[in-house]
């Protein structure tokens, strides 16, 4: 019981790191992006490559995965995605699905369809007993790391100058420009950091979630659930939505395996019916 709860929390934390970039770009910037998983996949694959081919230690791979995906995100944002901010939602959907299809087929072609594996360092293997439950050390590590990240991101958004610039840019780009904020740069940095976090999540998640070319499609729905259930008011909603989703998914698969993924889809629909703006968004005026 405790083990499952713990696994669920670890899974949820992981989902948060994977999806929080999306909750900013999609939730705040109102840009429908179905290709977020591509950046996670990039992070996962670069990690597998670094560890298995070059023997880079796992812990060093994590920041590298972040940087790699962030750079990829930055380049694609500058060249492609930014053209779509002002386009219709249909265009955004079509474009980002196209990116997903291309990425999936390209990875399949270049690397192959087999699962990627990463060797975890000895120190993260093994289990410890807490309160009578046996918990994998790696999961403890994930919870600690992702917890720190969540706090850091929240601080960045709320306390720093960049955070307030971002909020201003999202609220009304024209006014923000008038105030001397370089909106394009703010968006580009946000997109890059979000992609980087997705890459980091992919690196961390390779061992738990599995990593193969279909990753962006398989997990697209999870990311979307986090964003829609979490609401669009900020990343706090996404954080709690991730935890709920993680626990519900792990718990559901353990206790009622016969209905499988059914439980989370049903959960999402119920939330969307009751609160179309998401669970944690304050109802906006006007």
């Amino acid at each position: 019981m405790l083990t499952i709860l713990f696994d669920g929390i670890a899974y949820g934390m992981l989902l948060f790191v994977l999806a929080c970039g999306l909750s900013v770009t999609m939730g705040l910037m109102n840009f429908i992006n179905l290709s977020h998983g591509v950046f996670s996949m990039a992070g996962g694959y670069i990690t597998a490559f670094l560890i298995n081919r070059l023997g880079v230690p796992f812990l060093l791979c994590l920041p590298l995965a972040f940087l790699f995906s962030a750079a990829l995100g930055m380049v694609l944002e500058r060249t492609l995605y930014r053209r779509l901010y002002a386009r219709s939602h249909l265009d955004q959907v079509l474009f980002t699905i196209g990116i997903v299809f291309m990425a999936v087929a390209a990875v399949d072609y270049v690397i192959g369809s087999q699962q990627q594996t990463v060797k975890l360092p000895e120190i993260l293997k093994g289990r410890i007993d807490i309160f009578g439950g046996s918990i994998g050390l790696y999961r403890v590590f994930i919870i600690a790391l992702c917890g720190c990240l969540a706090v850091t991101i929240q601080m960045l958004l709320v306390k720093t100058r960049f955070g307030s610039q971002l909020r201003a840019a999202v609220d009304d780009p024209r006014v923000a420009r008038g105030m001397g904020i370089n909106v394009n740069t703010v968006f580009a940095i946000t997109f890059a950091v979000g992609s980087g976090l997705a890459g980091l999540g992919g690196a961390l998640g390779t061992d738990i979630l599995g990593m193969d070319p279909t990753f962006p499609i398989k997990f697209m729905i999870y990311f979307l659930i986090v964003v829609t259930v979490g609401g669009t008011s900020g990343i706090t909603g996404a954080f709690f939505a991730s935890l709920i989703l993680g626990i519900a998914d792990v718990g559901g698969k353990y206790y009622v395996p016969q209905i499988g993924a059914f439980i989370i889809y049903a959960l999402m629909l119920v939330v969307l019916i009751i609160r179309p703006q998401g669970l944690f968004s304050r109802s906006k005026g006007k």
Partner: peptide, 25 residues
């Protein structure tokens, strides 16, 4: 009927996924 494009996207996607799971199970 209620909600934004994003909500509609999710609801339609969610229903299709649920039916897929249902047929699978």
């Amino acid at each position: 009927l209620r909600g934004s494009d994003l909500t509609r996207l999710m609801v339609t996607l969610g229903i299709a996924l649920m039916l897929f799971e249902l047929a699978n199970r």
